[in-house]
């Protein structure tokens, strides 16, 4: 049973990673690409982590997986802000429809 749930979560995670990459390639400027990358990939990693946590052999492993996810969450949110702020400082125009 948990194997199937893990399978499902991992596959769902893969879809988000795919969408993140597609967004990175398709979106028109650095700001919109940041949206795709930070949000989609973090959900993707969250789902992968959740799927793997179901198979974990101990609570310490669950904790470590969670820690890794939180770390990536914190890192990519702060980095997204720093890149966006730096881009604005350099006067990179935002794409408008």
């Amino acid at each position: 049973m948990t194997e199937y749930l893990t399978m499902f979560l991992l596959l769902a995670g893969a879809v988000f990673f795919l969408a993140g990459t597609v967004g990175l390639l398709r979106f028109p400027d650095v700001y919109t690409r940041l949206h795709a990358l930070t949000k989609a990939d973090n959900v993707g990693l969250g789902l992968v982590v959740a799927g793997l946590a179901l198979q974990a052999e101990s609570w310490a492993v669950v904790g470590k997986l969670l820690l890794i996810w939180l770390l990536v969450l914190l890192a990519s949110a702060s980095v997204a802000h720093l890149v966006a702020a730096a881009a604005r400082q350099r006067g990179i125009k935002l794409w408008k429809r």
Binding site: F17, L25, L45, V49, A87
Partner: peptide
């Protein structure tokens, strides 16, 4: 994602791809 590194157009876009590598590589290794 490497395509974005090649294309740019700005240095920030290339950096984004590097960030993508960060998250995806973490998932891969896990």
């Amino acid at each position: 994602g490497l395509w974005r590194v090649l294309r740019g157009p700005t240095a920030a876009d290339r950096m984004l791809a590097a960030q993508l590598f960060g998250t995806t590589a973490v998932a891969c290794v896990l």
